[in-house]
Design a binder for these strands. Structure first.
Length: 270
DNA sequence: AAAGACACCTGTCCGC
DNA sequence: TGCGGACAGGTGTCTT
Protein backbone atom coordinates (compact mmCIF):
# COMPACT_ATOMS: atom_id res chain seq x y z
CA UNK A 1 0.00 0.00 0.00
CA UNK A 2 2.27 2.73 1.15
CA UNK A 3 5.20 4.31 -0.57
CA UNK A 4 7.24 7.10 0.94
CA UNK A 5 4.54 9.79 0.70
CA UNK A 6 1.95 7.63 2.43
CA UNK A 7 4.41 6.71 5.17
CA UNK A 8 5.36 10.36 5.63
CA UNK A 9 1.70 11.41 5.77
CA UNK A 10 1.16 8.73 8.42
CA UNK A 11 4.17 9.99 10.36
CA UNK A 12 2.93 13.54 10.33
CA UNK A 13 -0.51 12.40 11.41
CA UNK A 14 0.55 10.27 14.36
CA UNK A 15 3.56 12.23 15.59
CA UNK A 16 1.63 14.81 17.66
CA UNK A 17 -0.19 12.03 19.54
CA UNK A 18 2.94 10.03 20.27
CA UNK A 19 5.69 12.51 21.01
CA UNK A 20 6.27 13.17 24.67
CA UNK A 21 3.84 10.46 25.75
CA UNK A 22 4.55 7.36 27.76
CA UNK A 23 3.94 3.93 26.26
CA UNK A 24 1.64 2.49 28.90
CA UNK A 25 0.98 -0.83 27.20
CA UNK A 26 1.70 -2.70 23.98
CA UNK A 27 -1.03 -5.11 22.91
CA UNK A 28 0.00 -7.74 20.38
CA UNK A 29 -3.04 -9.59 19.03
CA UNK A 30 -1.16 -11.33 16.26
CA UNK A 31 2.62 -11.38 16.30
CA UNK A 32 2.87 -13.10 12.91
CA UNK A 33 3.97 -10.20 10.76
CA UNK A 34 6.77 -10.52 8.24
CA UNK A 35 8.96 -11.33 11.20
CA UNK A 36 7.38 -12.24 14.51
CA UNK A 37 6.94 -9.27 16.81
CA UNK A 38 9.55 -10.03 19.50
CA UNK A 39 8.45 -10.82 23.04
CA UNK A 40 10.96 -8.24 24.23
CA UNK A 41 8.88 -5.48 22.67
CA UNK A 42 7.20 -5.07 26.06
CA UNK A 43 10.45 -3.64 27.42
CA UNK A 44 9.40 -0.40 25.74
CA UNK A 45 6.43 -0.10 28.09
CA UNK A 46 6.95 2.67 30.59
CA UNK A 47 9.16 4.68 28.26
CA UNK A 48 8.46 7.97 26.58
CA UNK A 49 8.39 8.32 22.80
CA UNK A 50 10.79 11.17 22.25
CA UNK A 51 10.63 11.40 18.52
CA UNK A 52 8.83 9.88 15.52
CA UNK A 53 11.04 9.85 12.46
CA UNK A 54 11.11 8.13 9.10
CA UNK A 55 13.85 6.44 7.10
CA UNK A 56 12.67 5.36 3.66
CA UNK A 57 9.40 3.56 4.31
CA UNK A 58 10.31 2.71 7.89
CA UNK A 59 8.82 4.61 10.81
CA UNK A 60 11.01 4.97 13.88
CA UNK A 61 9.80 5.62 17.41
CA UNK A 62 12.70 6.69 19.57
CA UNK A 63 12.78 6.11 23.32
CA UNK A 64 15.53 6.34 25.90
CA UNK A 65 16.19 2.59 25.77
CA UNK A 66 15.90 1.95 22.05
CA UNK A 67 14.07 2.56 18.81
CA UNK A 68 11.09 0.68 17.47
CA UNK A 69 11.00 0.04 13.74
CA UNK A 70 7.61 -0.11 12.03
CA UNK A 71 7.02 -1.00 8.39
CA UNK A 72 3.61 -1.08 6.73
CA UNK A 73 4.43 -3.60 4.01
CA UNK A 74 1.88 -3.71 1.21
CA UNK A 75 -1.32 -3.43 3.18
CA UNK A 76 -0.55 -1.86 6.54
CA UNK A 77 -2.17 1.27 7.88
CA UNK A 78 -2.11 3.19 11.16
CA UNK A 79 -4.88 4.89 13.07
CA UNK A 80 -4.97 6.99 16.19
CA UNK A 81 -7.90 5.91 18.35
CA UNK A 82 -9.16 6.16 21.90
CA UNK A 83 -8.24 3.33 24.23
CA UNK A 84 -11.10 0.84 24.29
CA UNK A 85 -12.38 1.29 20.74
CA UNK A 86 -13.78 -1.73 18.94
CA UNK A 87 -11.18 -4.07 17.48
CA UNK A 88 -11.58 -5.06 13.84
CA UNK A 89 -10.19 -7.84 11.73
CA UNK A 90 -6.44 -7.53 11.10
CA UNK A 91 -5.91 -5.07 13.97
CA UNK A 92 -2.72 -6.81 15.02
CA UNK A 93 -1.09 -4.27 17.29
CA UNK A 94 -1.92 -1.42 19.67
CA UNK A 95 0.50 0.95 21.32
CA UNK A 96 -1.37 2.51 24.22
CA UNK A 97 -0.30 5.92 25.41
CA UNK A 98 -0.47 7.94 28.61
CA UNK A 99 -2.72 10.51 26.90
CA UNK A 100 -5.57 7.99 26.58
CA UNK A 101 -4.95 7.42 22.88
CA UNK A 102 -3.56 4.42 21.10
CA UNK A 103 -1.80 3.77 17.82
CA UNK A 104 -3.37 0.81 16.02
CA UNK A 105 -1.81 -1.17 13.19
CA UNK A 106 -4.12 -2.91 10.75
CA UNK A 107 -2.41 -5.10 8.17
CA UNK A 108 -4.43 -7.72 6.23
CA UNK A 109 -1.52 -9.27 4.38
CA UNK A 110 0.89 -9.14 7.33
CA UNK A 111 3.86 -8.08 5.22
CA UNK A 112 4.50 -5.32 7.71
CA UNK A 113 6.93 -5.46 10.60
CA UNK A 114 7.30 -4.22 14.16
CA UNK A 115 10.76 -4.64 15.66
CA UNK A 116 13.04 -2.71 17.93
CA UNK A 117 16.71 -2.19 18.50
CA UNK A 118 18.81 -0.97 21.40
CA UNK A 119 21.67 0.02 19.14
CA UNK A 120 21.53 3.23 17.08
CA UNK A 121 18.80 2.55 14.53
CA UNK A 122 21.00 3.35 11.56
CA UNK A 123 23.04 0.26 12.39
CA UNK A 124 20.07 -2.08 12.27
CA UNK A 125 20.32 -4.73 9.59
CA UNK A 126 17.22 -3.50 7.76
CA UNK A 127 18.40 0.11 7.71
CA UNK A 128 22.17 -0.04 7.46
CA UNK A 129 22.42 -0.37 3.68
CA UNK A 130 19.69 2.02 2.63
CA UNK A 131 20.42 4.64 0.01
CA UNK A 132 19.83 8.38 0.47
CA UNK A 133 16.52 10.03 1.23
CA UNK A 134 15.08 11.25 -2.08
CA UNK A 135 13.98 14.59 -0.66
CA UNK A 136 17.36 15.37 0.86
CA UNK A 137 20.32 17.07 -0.77
CA UNK A 138 22.18 13.77 -0.56
CA UNK A 139 20.13 12.59 -3.50
CA UNK A 140 20.56 14.02 -6.98
CA UNK A 141 21.01 13.12 -10.62
CA UNK A 142 24.76 13.04 -10.33
CA UNK A 143 24.49 10.21 -7.80
CA UNK A 144 22.10 8.27 -10.02
CA UNK A 145 24.38 8.76 -13.00
CA UNK A 146 27.48 7.58 -11.16
CA UNK A 147 25.82 4.56 -9.65
CA UNK A 148 24.27 3.53 -12.97
CA UNK A 149 27.42 3.31 -15.07
CA UNK A 150 28.47 -0.25 -14.39
CA UNK A 151 24.98 -1.66 -14.43
CA UNK A 152 22.45 -2.47 -17.11
CA UNK A 153 19.17 -3.33 -15.43
CA UNK A 154 15.93 -1.60 -16.40
CA UNK A 155 15.96 1.93 -15.01
CA UNK A 156 12.63 1.36 -13.30
CA UNK A 157 14.09 -1.44 -11.21
CA UNK A 158 17.13 0.72 -10.52
CA UNK A 159 15.18 3.59 -8.97
CA UNK A 160 12.98 1.17 -7.03
CA UNK A 161 16.06 -0.34 -5.38
CA UNK A 162 16.26 0.97 -1.81
CA UNK A 163 20.04 0.73 -1.87
CA UNK A 164 20.08 3.29 -4.67
CA UNK A 165 17.44 5.61 -3.25
CA UNK A 166 14.77 4.88 -0.65
CA UNK A 167 11.05 5.38 -0.87
CA UNK A 168 10.35 5.10 -4.59
CA UNK A 169 7.74 2.37 -5.04
CA UNK A 170 5.81 1.19 -8.05
CA UNK A 171 3.42 4.12 -8.39
CA UNK A 172 5.98 6.89 -8.10
CA UNK A 173 8.60 5.09 -10.18
CA UNK A 174 6.12 4.98 -13.06
CA UNK A 175 5.12 8.61 -12.57
CA UNK A 176 8.66 9.96 -12.23
CA UNK A 177 9.79 8.16 -15.40
CA UNK A 178 6.85 9.57 -17.31
CA UNK A 179 7.58 13.08 -16.09
CA UNK A 180 11.24 12.68 -17.00
CA UNK A 181 10.41 11.30 -20.46
CA UNK A 182 12.32 8.05 -19.95
CA UNK A 183 11.10 4.60 -20.99
CA UNK A 184 11.01 2.35 -17.91
CA UNK A 185 12.75 -0.48 -19.78
CA UNK A 186 15.84 1.53 -20.69
CA UNK A 187 19.08 0.01 -19.40
CA UNK A 188 20.68 2.12 -16.67
CA UNK A 189 23.94 2.57 -18.58
CA UNK A 190 22.09 3.82 -21.67
CA UNK A 191 20.51 6.77 -19.90
CA UNK A 192 22.28 10.10 -20.32
CA UNK A 193 23.49 12.25 -17.49
CA UNK A 194 21.06 14.93 -18.53
CA UNK A 195 18.19 12.46 -18.22
CA UNK A 196 19.35 11.41 -14.76
CA UNK A 197 19.41 15.02 -13.64
CA UNK A 198 15.86 15.43 -14.89
CA UNK A 199 14.77 12.13 -13.33
CA UNK A 200 16.12 13.00 -9.88
CA UNK A 201 14.29 16.33 -10.01
CA UNK A 202 11.05 14.67 -11.03
CA UNK A 203 11.34 12.08 -8.27
CA UNK A 204 11.64 14.90 -5.76
CA UNK A 205 8.76 16.82 -7.27
CA UNK A 206 6.36 13.89 -7.48
CA UNK A 207 7.09 12.69 -3.94
CA UNK A 208 6.86 16.16 -2.42
CA UNK A 209 3.63 16.89 -4.25
CA UNK A 210 2.11 13.57 -3.17
CA UNK A 211 2.95 14.30 0.47
CA UNK A 212 1.29 17.67 0.13
CA UNK A 213 -1.84 16.01 -1.24
CA UNK A 214 -2.00 13.51 1.62
CA UNK A 215 -0.65 10.58 -0.42
CA UNK A 216 -2.27 8.40 -3.03
CA UNK A 217 -5.44 6.52 -2.22
CA UNK A 218 -6.12 3.79 -4.76
CA UNK A 219 -8.27 1.39 -2.82
CA UNK A 220 -8.13 1.90 0.86
CA UNK A 221 -5.20 4.00 1.99
CA UNK A 222 -6.27 6.41 4.68
CA UNK A 223 -4.05 8.48 6.86
CA UNK A 224 -4.12 8.15 10.62
CA UNK A 225 -7.27 10.26 10.89
CA UNK A 226 -9.13 8.09 8.39
CA UNK A 227 -8.99 10.53 5.48
CA UNK A 228 -7.90 9.42 2.01
CA UNK A 229 -5.09 11.02 0.01
CA UNK A 230 -5.85 12.98 -3.12
CA UNK A 231 -2.80 12.44 -5.26
CA UNK A 232 -4.47 9.68 -7.32
CA UNK A 233 -6.10 12.41 -9.38
CA UNK A 234 -2.70 13.53 -10.52
CA UNK A 235 -1.33 10.20 -11.67
CA UNK A 236 -0.44 10.46 -15.34
CA UNK A 237 0.25 6.83 -16.16
CA UNK A 238 -0.14 4.51 -13.17
CA UNK A 239 -3.26 2.39 -13.58
CA UNK A 240 -4.20 4.18 -16.80
CA UNK A 241 -3.64 1.48 -19.40
CA UNK A 242 -5.53 2.28 -22.60
CA UNK A 243 -6.34 5.83 -21.57
CA UNK A 244 -5.14 8.84 -23.53
CA UNK A 245 -1.81 10.31 -22.46
CA UNK A 246 -2.37 13.63 -20.73
CA UNK A 247 0.37 15.21 -22.86
CA UNK A 248 -0.06 13.75 -26.34
CA UNK A 249 -3.28 11.69 -26.47
CA UNK A 250 -1.35 8.55 -27.33
CA UNK A 251 -2.62 5.43 -25.56
CA UNK A 252 -0.93 4.53 -22.28
CA UNK A 253 0.59 1.08 -22.50
CA UNK A 254 1.13 -1.51 -19.80
CA UNK A 255 3.87 -4.11 -19.55
CA UNK A 256 5.51 -6.12 -16.78
CA UNK A 257 8.98 -5.38 -15.51
CA UNK A 258 10.13 -7.80 -12.86
CA UNK A 259 6.54 -8.89 -12.45
CA UNK A 260 5.41 -5.37 -11.51
CA UNK A 261 2.87 -3.49 -13.59
CA UNK A 262 4.61 -0.78 -15.59
CA UNK A 263 2.81 2.02 -17.41
CA UNK A 264 4.17 4.44 -19.96
CA UNK A 265 3.52 6.55 -23.04
CA UNK A 266 5.69 5.35 -25.91
CA UNK A 267 5.47 8.75 -27.57
CA UNK A 268 6.48 10.88 -24.59
CA UNK A 269 9.03 8.46 -23.15
CA UNK A 270 12.18 7.51 -25.07
C1' DA B 1 28.75 -8.75 -7.60
C1' DA B 2 24.57 -8.24 -10.17
C1' DA B 3 20.02 -9.49 -11.71
C1' DG B 4 16.05 -12.06 -11.62
C1' DA B 5 12.83 -15.28 -9.43
C1' DC B 6 10.54 -16.42 -5.36
C1' DA B 7 8.43 -16.07 -1.02
C1' DC B 8 5.46 -14.17 2.43
C1' DC B 9 -0.44 -13.40 3.00
C1' DT B 10 -5.18 -11.82 2.36
C1' DG B 11 -8.71 -9.52 -0.21
C1' DT B 12 -10.74 -8.19 -4.48
C1' DC B 13 -11.95 -8.37 -9.07
C1' DC B 14 -12.81 -10.55 -13.49
C1' DG B 15 -14.17 -14.17 -16.61
C1' DC B 16 -16.57 -18.34 -17.09
C1' DT C 1 -24.03 -17.21 -7.34
C1' DG C 2 -19.80 -19.79 -7.20
C1' DC C 3 -15.17 -20.92 -8.45
C1' DG C 4 -10.48 -20.38 -10.15
C1' DG C 5 -6.97 -17.45 -11.24
C1' DA C 6 -4.65 -13.14 -11.62
C1' DC C 7 -3.34 -9.28 -9.27
C1' DA C 8 -2.21 -5.62 -5.50
C1' DG C 9 1.04 0.22 -2.92
C1' DG C 10 7.15 -4.08 -0.50
C1' DT C 11 11.39 -6.20 0.15
C1' DG C 12 14.50 -9.85 2.14
C1' DT C 13 16.44 -14.11 0.54
C1' DC C 14 17.66 -17.50 -2.58
C1' DT C 15 19.34 -18.92 -7.34
C1' DT C 16 21.55 -18.16 -11.34
Amino acid sequence: MPELPEVEVSRQGISPYLCGNNITKIVVRDARLRWPIPETIHQLEGHIIQKVTRRGKYLLFETAIGTSILHLGMSGSLRIMDIGEVVNKHDHLDIELSNGKLLRLNDPRRFGAFLWTQAPWAEHKLLAKLGPEPLSDDFDGQLLFERSRKRSLAIKNFIMNAQVVVGVGNIYANEALFRAGILPTTATNKVSKKSYLKLAKEIKIVLAEAIKQGGTTLKDFTSSNGKPGYFAQQLHVYGREGEACSACENKIEQIKIGNRATYFCSRCQK
